[in-house]
Design a protein around this nucleic acid. Structure first.
Lengths: 252, 252
DNA sequence: CTCACGTTTCGCCCGTGAACGAAATGTCGT
DNA sequence: ACGACATTTCGTTCACGGGCGAAACGTGAG
């Protein structure tokens, strides 16, 4: 028999700024080599190595050998969920350099969250879908106070979003093939976006929309961070098809 | 404009064993005075005071003054969600004393999670509801591997549980008044139980069932922890009405 | 086979923060 | 107003863990 859960040991792993940056970089489930992560964390290779082995020993990361590189990734979705939960209540980090500043800006503007869209892009899209009545069942806002009514309600499960007939029609026109979506995964879920404190679309539909937008060239992965770059066609397409008013400058 | 999320600062708050025990004790949203929390954490009052003020400054806790006591509670549901996410991937804590051991045992056996039932009681009940076809749409298991199919899937939203006609009938007979349940809160949600790694029932139905069981005297709050005590009527009632085979000894 | 590169181990320095008791502060009950 | 109790502040001690560079290790490329 064992005792209570030792959450302090996990907390200690996250407590170091270098390790935290490593976790954030791996946040959407990608695999990255140690050297890149050292760079990402802003520490020497030896230091990063120590951090990485502690994270592996603690069960948060797992390793894959590929030639003389060692690729690290989150050991499971629960870890990603933890990172999201942490980011949601974390204060904004102090900006260390101009480059870091604009990089953080890009991540907040549009990024990947697992396999769907997040950041301002993700939440504005959700808003557009709701305004055009393609989606119904919630208002897209994250309101910690509302949940207080019945003490502390279950976390993040407070809305039942569903597609409207118009939504199915428009999304089919957009290029979503509903028949080919995985059966066992729910069509529509939502995440609370940590940078916007609003909802963005997840579930298999969220993933399909993200895939389709990349396919159309509306967005593309920017560099090796989770940030996404929105193309001109993306901006016009988002406005015309989903009523999303998004401009390259309204990020901050 | 601000930079990335500073999850390390939150991690540092959780990293200390004393603070972690405080957070765990407050995990379901209750308010407790500083002296009780000092006892719970196993440290001197002065030490606990320092911990508590750091947790408040960090935004994880808030204070309410009541006479010469100061009651602390989680500052919001997001914090509770974080604690659950942490506990889910944490190793079992080393047992420090016999008393702590049996206390941890009691918590794993049956406890409160926000306003519904968790621990072995909660997961066995979920299992019973599914076996008797009062509930459908999932199998009650938490399987991190299954989510791997489509990379890292959205966290914890992988099933769509729903009541069957038989479920509505039986639960009405059990004493649940469906008409009086809050409208804006979803009827059925689930949580991944950190001690059992299975699902237990949440949502307004989960809360109503918990309330009704307390009303019937099947369970009662044990002491000032989150643990619940199951009465003899509770054991027989659970078996007869929900097919739950639970004995006082199968906790470990 | 040997070189080059990615990664880990080692040894050392240094700063941070957790612990406690004692004493100060504050609040209630009588 | 006084004494009891809850809580915080203060001052000190002490241990743990992060940081780096140098050197060792291991693997793939030429």
């Amino acid at each position: 028999m064992h005792g209570d859960a030792d959450i302090a040991s996990i907390g200690a792993l996250v407590a170091d700024p270098g390790r935290a940056r490593i976790l954030l970089a791996l946040g959407d489930g990608r695999a990255l080599p140690a050297s890149v992560l050292a760079d990402e964390a802003g520490v020497a290779a030896s230091t990063a190595s120590a951090h990485l082995s502690r994270l592996v020993k603690g069960g948060m990361l797992k390793v894959e050998r590929h030639g003389r590189h060692r690729y690290f990734r989150l050991s499971g979705p629960e870890v990603g969920e933890l990172i999201e939960a942490l980011a949601r209540i974390s204060p904004p980090a102090p900006v260390r350099s101009l480059k870091q500043g604009s990089k953080a800006h890009a991540v907040r503007f549009a990024r990947t969250c697992y396999d769907h869209l997040a950041g301002m892009l993700g939440t504005k899209l959700m808003e557009g879908l709701l305004e055009q009545n393609l989606l119904a069942g919630g208002d897209g806002v994250f309101d910690p106070e509302a949940a207080r009514d019945d003490r502390l309600a279950a976390p993040g499960y407070d809305h039942d979003y569903r597609l409207t007939p118009a939504g199915i029609k428009d999304l089919k026109a957009f290029g979503i093939d509903f028949d080919s979506l995985p059966a066992r995964r729910p069509l529509i879920r939502y995440c609370v976006d940590w940078s916007e404190q609003r909802h963005h679309l997840a579930g298999s539909l969220g993933a399909a929309i993200a895939t389709r937008m990349i396919e159309l060239g509306w967005v593309r992965k920017a560099g090796r961070s989770r940030a996404l770059h929105v193309s001109d066609e993306g901006f016009t397409g988002l406005r015309e098809q989903f009523g999303v008013e998004l401009t390259p400058t309204n990020g901050h």
